[in-house]
Simulated scan of single mutants.
Amino acid sequence: MAMSGWQKALWLEWKGLQEEPVEGFRVALLNESDLANWEVAIFGPPETLYQGGYFKAQMTFPQDYPYSPPSFRFLTKMWHPNVYENGDVCISILHPPTDDPQSGELPSERWNPTQNVRTILLSVISLLSEPNTFSPANVDASVMYRRWRESDGRDSEYETIVRDSPFFSLP
């Protein structure tokens, strides 16, 4: 089977992640013959409220990758300021490189072809460690997170919701 340019680029990225994985992640193809859909396993980063959690996600790549960003969606229910109810992640580097003055993002913070799967995974870990409450996808989670952080953990509502998730046991 002949591969197109985007498929070759994606294959090299996938192969590189198998040889040198990003700590806290495991990636696999959903179907060996489909490079455009990846399954991602995320282990909650140490020293965060998500520590000890095991979360599943899916990355879907467009046919003009790397010129357009993939999508990243949690399949596991997530309570996080930057995760929509449907699991889509709201993170600057996954936004198309268009000029959008309403977003509050600089064009340099958005997707560009020098980004790759590794930078996306590291950005997701960063987001789990330090949510962006200035541009929330889940306003309720953002308000609770800010309240929790400002109270130095004394207001435990956010922490309780995160920790009561059934996904805090490793497979």
Results as ranks from 00 to 15, higher is better:
106 L>G: 07
92 S>N: 03
32 E>K: 05
108 S>R: 03
86 N>G: 12
129 S>K: 09
120 I>E: 04
6 W>Q: 05
40 V>G: 00
95 H>L: 13
91 I>Y: 03
144 M>C: 08
47 E>D: 13
37 N>V: 11
17 L>V: 00
146 R>C: 13
45 P>V: 13
104 G>S: 08
134 F>G: 09
86 N>S: 14
157 E>G: 00
78 M>F: 09
46 P>N: 09
54 Y>L: 04
2 A>E: 11
51 Q>R: 00
69 P>D: 11
139 V>R: 10
31 N>Y: 12
129 S>N: 11
106 L>E: 14
169 S>P: 02
11 W>E: 13
84 Y>F: 14
86 N>D: 15
79 W>D: 04
61 F>E: 00
142 S>L: 05
130 E>R: 05
11 W>D: 13
1 M>A: 10
22 V>M: 01
23 E>N: 04
72 F>A: 00
41 A>F: 14
158 Y>K: 00
134 F>K: 09
23 E>R: 01
7 Q>H: 07
44 G>D: 10
47 E>N: 08
52 G>R: 07
113 P>L: 12
130 E>A: 08
120 I>D: 03
7 Q>Y: 07
139 V>I: 14
1 M>T: 09
110 R>K: 15
34 D>E: 15
98 T>G: 09
79 W>T: 05
138 N>V: 07
143 V>H: 02
45 P>R: 11
166 P>A: 09
97 P>W: 07
171 P>Q: 14
124 V>G: 02
5 G>K: 11
69 P>W: 10
122 L>K: 10
105 E>I: 05
95 H>E: 15
102 Q>W: 15
68 S>Y: 06
93 I>N: 04
147 R>T: 09
63 Q>L: 13
168 F>N: 05
138 N>L: 10
63 Q>D: 14
117 V>Q: 01
124 V>N: 03
18 Q>A: 08
140 D>G: 02
79 W>M: 06
130 E>D: 15
160 T>D: 15
82 N>K: 06
20 E>F: 10
25 F>L: 05
93 I>E: 08
34 D>Y: 11
128 L>G: 03
132 N>I: 01
130 E>C: 06
105 E>F: 13
152 D>T: 06
2 A>W: 07
113 P>R: 12
128 L>N: 01
149 R>M: 15
33 S>D: 15
149 R>S: 10
18 Q>L: 15
8 K>R: 10
171 P>D: 13
90 C>K: 00
73 R>S: 06
133 T>I: 12
94 L>K: 01
104 G>F: 06
137 A>F: 08
64 D>Y: 04
71 S>D: 08
133 T>C: 13
92 S>Q: 04
29 L>F: 03
48 T>F: 10
168 F>Q: 01
147 R>W: 08
57 A>R: 01
80 H>R: 05
129 S>E: 15
121 L>Q: 02
24 G>F: 14
114 T>G: 09
84 Y>Q: 02
164 D>W: 07
121 L>S: 01
97 P>L: 05
158 Y>Q: 06
32 E>I: 07
144 M>A: 12
4 S>V: 08
